[in-house]
Nucleic acid binder design. Structure first.
Lengths: 185, 185
DNA sequence: AATCTCGCCGCTTTCGGACGTGACAGTGGA
DNA sequence: TCCACTGTCACGTCCGAAAGCGGCGAGATT
């Protein structure tokens, strides 16, 4: 069931992501309805009507907000764009560990500045941090599941220099790559 | 003469408009030179070289910043754009006291949101406040320099109702329009 | 001996600050 | 009722600082 009106209004004020999709708000002064996470200014309490489904709001004569697009599948509105960029960036990075941030941004069709912002907002990481994390994860997998020489492992997991591989490994794991493999057995 | 280096650096940190044109900064790490008012992050003290003229910086091998355009006549760079919009808006408004904010913005080629922001930033006024100020100034001029009847004065200075004219006049001047004219003599 | 590890270093990249400008919603005033 | 005003966010540009990168080479390991 739909949460009660007070709960809804609180969720609305907080733009609580957890409530996205659980209810919709119609604003009587504008005749527009939104998702709880809409970035628009929070309407006054007594101008809100809460609905369980977008269709009910629509039936009551409200028009869908153009920013949060309550009438579309979540993920297709401009408010979801940042999360979308971040997600696509992470996926692209996995597929092409060698791409620079600038190239990545170009493929996603946004500026590199925006890409950085998006990743920071969504994951709390810079592109480089995410890349390193992904590379290291792959490296550990190869270390454990194969017997490739270390230099092969480094290259295969996306590092372009042995120097960096060793450095990063020790920084995060606290030991040299060979030590992990040894401990593995 | 050019201010001394410490003064320059202080002016730079403060982005002091008063020093715009009085000196230029070359940043050794980037080989770029700027006007003191450039919005870019303030460079470290020991990476700054100060020049009296743009040409001297240029001669020392620095390239002009693309934001503050120290190589162009002041008023032709993007950092001057806001001030420029505000100035042009004020002028247009004088010529056409009847234009709405939206129409004004359209003629200036910017969004009305941006126009409002620009006026607020530069003059500290909303479009309506500026318009009212201009109308009142013109009304006072007509009151003093002509013998037009009050209703004529109001219309001629851009007010679209006598009611507003009287209201506004009293609010700002503290007396009725006729009182000013009488006092004038 | 072959493979790893790690300090050093010049050169790029990356990161974040600051601002421009747009879109849209909600409130309130004339 | 309509227009003006503001809050909130997206996303771009450009710069300055700092971090990261990759090569080199010497010692350490196996």
């Amino acid at each position: 069931m739909m949460p009660d009106a007070d709960i809804c209004y609180r969720a609305l004020k907080a733009r609580d992501r957890a409530f996205d999709g659980r209810f919709f708000v119609g604003v009587t002064s504008t005749r527009i309805y939104c998702r709880p996470i809409c970035p628009a200014r929070t309407p006054l309490r007594d101008r809100c009507l809460f609905f369980q489904h977008a269709a009910s709001a629509e039936a009551a004569g409200f028009k869908p907000c153009l920013r949060c697009r309550p009438d579309l599948t979540p993920g297709n509105s401009s408010v979801d764009a940042v999360a979308d960029v971040a997600k696509r960036a992470a996926r692209l990075m996995l597929a092409h560990p060698g791409l620079s941030t600038e190239e990545l941004a170009a493929r996603l069709g946004v500026s590199s500045r925006h890409l950085r912002r998006a990743l920071k907002t969504v994951l709390g990481l810079t592109p480089t941090q995410l890349r390193r994390r992904q590379r290291l994860r792959e490296a550990k997998r190869l270390l454990c599941e194969t017997t490739l020489p270390l230099s092969r492992v480094a290259l295969a997991s996306g590092f372009r220099s042995l120097r960096r591989f060793n450095d990063e490994f020790r920084r995060v794991e606290g030991c040299a790559p060979s030590a992990l493999r040894k401990a593995q057995r």
